[in-house]
């Protein structure tokens, strides 16, 4: 008996310990998940940009998950067949590398594991995925004013409430509505479909998963209205892009050349009496030269 009870006690103890530690992990994991994953993923909330992560811990082993989370692209490039399959199954949208420690990755995986079980129970709310709690207003029905607001936010004509930088600093959309933007980051012309529609974009703008963008907006989050406006704008841009030439050339270049020509003409008129040649030029030209 003694022999039999000892393992039982140990098992219970370990189970309790595991549960507590798992619970602690899960608490930390929840924070990380909300910061880094929620933009693209749900646990039991359906597919967004990335797949629903419910049951992912049973589907893939932890070592693989850790590698994937650390750098999905490296894993793909190393020729891992599962990784390539996953990549292709998700429209080849690369998952950004996460700057997380091993412990943190473990915490977030544990969090997903715990929530997968709770979500699996019928009727249980997907508490972890906060986004779907409030149904997202469709950007298809956005008013012209809201689209215009989005455009102004994108261009930087309207300042973001919390002082974030305008999208155009890094991003470009091919649209006749605005001038071409930066080329530091992805072109956003077709981002609406590419990144999971309203829900995906709202998630990304809420908590940007991309390192540079996350850093830029860390202390300067967008408000709900602003997010909606930008999403609406990106939606309309994508719809319009079908009827506009895909490679909208910069009008800046054209205007640049025109104004350059105008300035040249002005300079030639204003400075027409300037000293153009050496005073001795005529004399020198007449002189004999040895060569």
């Amino acid at each position: 008996m003694i022999i039999s009870t000892q393992p039982l006690k140990a098992t219970v103890f370990i189970a309790i310990f595991c549960f507590i530690s798992l619970g602690l992990n899960a608490q930390n994991g929840e924070r990380i998940f909300k910061n880094s994953c929620i933009a693209c993923h749900t646990v039991g909330g359906g597919k967004r940009v990335g797949p629903d992560l419910i049951g992912i811990t049973t589907k893939r082993n932890e070592a693989w998950l850790t590698k994937w989370i650390r750098s999905s692209q490296s894993l793909i490039q190393s020729g891992d067949s599962i990784a390539i399959a996953v990549f292709e199954a998700n429209n080849k949208v690369p998952m950004p590398d996460q700057n997380l420690s091993d412990a943190e990755i473990k915490e977030v995986v544990d969090y997903i594991k715990v929530n997968s079980t709770t979500a699996a129970v019928p009727g249980a709310a997907t508490l972890a995925t906060s986004a779907p709690q409030v149904p997202i207003k469709s950007s298809d029905i956005a008013s012209a004013e809201e689209i215009l607001l989005g455009q102004h936010i994108f261009e930087g004509d309207t300042r973001l409430t919390n002082g974030g930088v305008a999208c155009i600093s890094c991003h470009n959309v091919a649209s006749n509505r605005i001038i071409p933007g930066g080329l530091l980051a992805k072109d956003l012309t077709t981002v609406h479909t590419r990144m999971g529609g309203d829900a995906g974009l709202t998630g990304i703008l809420n908590a940007p998963p991309f390192p540079a963008m996350a850093e830029a907006y860390k202390n300067r989050p967008l408000t709900e209205n602003e997010i909606y406006a930008v999403v609406s704008f990106l939606n309309i841009v994508e719809k319009e892009s079908a009827t506009q030439s895909a490679t909208a050339t910069s009008p800046l270049l054209k205007y640049g050349f025109i104004s350059f020509a105008v300035w040249i003409v002005i300079i030639f008129i204003v400075w027409r009496h300037r000293k153009k040649y050496a005073v001795n030029k005529r004399i020198y030209e007449r002189q004999l030269k040895t060569s």
């Binding site: 400075w271 300037r274 050496a278 005073v279 001795n280």
Partner: peptide
Amino acid sequence: NPYLPVLDD
């Protein structure tokens, strides 16, 4: 400054 004398001046 176009009004400067040049070396040839």
